[in-house]
Structures are given as C-alpha cells and as structure tokens.
Amino acid sequence: MTDSVYKIIELVGTSDVSWEKAAENAISRASESLRDLRIAEVTAMDLHVKDGKIEYYRTKLKVSFKFEGHH
C-alpha cells in the first residue's frame, strides 16, 4: 500500500424528506466536484421548524477524500 493523505471537509445537506436524504443530497452534490470520496461521518442532525411543522431536515457531515497535491 502506498502512502496516502486524505483531506476532510464539512458539508451540510438538506431535505424535506429525512436526515438520510439530506446526507445523500450532500454526498451526491459533493461527488460532482470532488473525486475519490472515502468516508462520511455524520456529526450532527437537526431540523428547521415552521408553524409547528418540520420544514426541512439538515445533516452535517465530515467527508474525507484522497488529497492529490502537486509536488
């Protein structure tokens, strides 16, 4: 195995369906511009309430991907 370095960023996904869908939305969007996503750790889940009802769910993730810096 070669030595590797991974970068970690934080993302927040939203969904009007569920926390799982919010996480899926964040990963799906991130994978459009980031290559080689490896691990996503859910660090927080909350929701936005309006007029006594859930308006949308939010899932905060720490996502790691392989860092490909130039020498």
Rank of each mutant, 00 (worst) to 15 (best):
K66D: 07
L37R: 01
Y6C: 07
R35G: 04
V42E: 11
A30D: 04
I27S: 06
R58L: 01
G69C: 06
K66Y: 06
M45D: 12
E68V: 10
T59C: 11
G52K: 09
E32R: 08
D16A: 02
V5Y: 08
K60W: 09
R58T: 00
F67M: 10
K21S: 13
A26S: 09
R58G: 00
A30R: 01
S15Y: 00
D46N: 15
N25H: 07
L61H: 03
E41W: 12
N25I: 03
A40T: 09
V42K: 08
S18G: 13
G69N: 05
S31T: 04
F65P: 03
A26D: 05
D51Y: 15
V17T: 12
S28L: 12
V42W: 05
A30G: 07
V42M: 14
S64D: 02
V49D: 03
H48Y: 15
S31D: 09
A23K: 06
S18F: 03
A26V: 04
K66Q: 11
K66M: 08
L11S: 04
E24H: 06
W19Y: 15
N25L: 08
K60H: 14
G13F: 03
S15H: 01
I54R: 04
A44C: 10
T59W: 02
I39T: 04
E41N: 11
A26M: 06
R35K: 10
G13C: 09
K66T: 14
T43D: 06
E68L: 08
Y57G: 00
L34M: 04
K7W: 03
Y6S: 10
L37Q: 02
I8D: 08
T2Y: 15
E41Q: 12
S64C: 05
L47E: 08
R35Y: 04
R38W: 05
M45S: 12
I39W: 08
T59S: 07
W19A: 06
G13E: 02
A23D: 03
S28C: 08
I27L: 14
L34Q: 02
N25W: 01
L47T: 09
L37D: 01
D46C: 13
A44E: 14
Y6H: 07
H70L: 12
E24I: 11
K21Q: 14
I9P: 00
A26T: 06
M45A: 12
E32D: 10
V42T: 15
R35D: 02
R35H: 10
K62I: 03
